[in-house]
Simulated assay, not measured.
Amino acid sequence: MISRLSDDLLLKILSSLPTKDVVSTMLLSKRWKFLWTMVPALYFQSDFESSKDDYAKFRQHLRLGWHSTTDDITIWIKIAVARRVRKLKIHCYTDDDDIFLPSCLYTYNNLEVLKLGNSIVLDVPEDVRLPSLKTLHLLCVEFRNEESSRRILSGCPCRDCLFLIRIERETIPT
């Protein structure tokens, strides 16, 4: 009976489930095989109660967490852009390296909400163009230089909401 529901309604239901349950629906039938890939939001939470083996297995497929790298984040941002995601929230916590975002994010026409936080360094290119961006949250991110802070703000002409908490640290060497 649930398979008779519209894709829109099924996607709304799936978006309220944990990611591991959403992905497992692909086994239900041919119709469900790729339905999970259209879910607008996937949630991953790594908790300390999970066994280390479970976390290690999951990281083989989804390399996000305390030890994420710029390469990990870049892959997922490129997937999000390819899937035409409209809302993107990235908060990275890493002691090892700063996280740099790929240039494709700064020229993504469909992005409406961008929330960035913590170990992210914004190295904004000159050709930044985010025409649909309405909400921009920058929480304790670093700007590679002063031009980057000016560019990100000027590249969002339709911005309605700006939330900025800026930390003062030395400029990152180029």
Rank of each mutant, 00 (worst) to 15 (best):
R4S: 14
L5S: 09
D7C: 00
D7G: 02
D8I: 01
D8W: 00
L9H: 05
L9I: 15
L10Q: 02
L11R: 04
L11A: 04
I13C: 08
I13N: 06
S15P: 06
L17W: 05
P18C: 09
K20T: 07
D21Y: 12
L27A: 08
R31K: 15
K33A: 06
K33F: 07
K33Q: 09
F34T: 10
L35N: 06
L35Q: 01
V39F: 01
V39I: 10
P40M: 08
Q45P: 00
Q45T: 13
S46I: 15
F48T: 13
F48C: 08
S50E: 13
K52I: 11
K52W: 02
D53R: 08
D54R: 10
D54V: 03
R59T: 13
H67Y: 11
T69V: 04
T70F: 01
D72V: 04
D72T: 01
T74I: 01
I75E: 11
W76H: 15
I77W: 02
I77D: 03
I77L: 00
I77S: 03
I79D: 09
I79N: 12
I79R: 14
A80H: 02
V81D: 01
V81I: 15
A82F: 07
A82V: 02
R84Y: 08
V85R: 03
V85C: 06
K87H: 07
K87S: 08
L88Q: 02
L88F: 02
Y93K: 05
Y93S: 11
D98W: 11
D98S: 09
I99M: 02
F100L: 13
L101T: 10
S103A: 07
C104F: 03
Y106M: 08
Y106T: 05
N109I: 08
N110P: 00
L111K: 07
E112S: 07
K115P: 01
G117K: 02
N118W: 10
S119W: 03
I120E: 05
V121F: 00
V124L: 02
P125E: 02
P125W: 00
E126Y: 05
V128C: 15
V128A: 15
R129I: 03
R129N: 15
R129H: 09
L130Y: 00
P131Q: 06
L133H: 04
K134A: 14
L136E: 03
L139I: 13
C140F: 13
V141G: 02
E142I: 09
E142A: 07
E142P: 01
E142L: 08
E142T: 12
R144Y: 10
N145C: 05
E147S: 14
E147D: 15
E147Y: 10
S148A: 11
S148N: 07
R150F: 00
S154R: 13
G155R: 08
G155T: 11
P157F: 06
C158Q: 10
L162V: 04
L164Y: 13
I165L: 14
I167L: 14
I167G: 14
R169A: 13
R169K: 14
I172C: 12
I172R: 15
I172N: 09
I172W: 06
P173M: 11
T174D: 14
T174I: 12
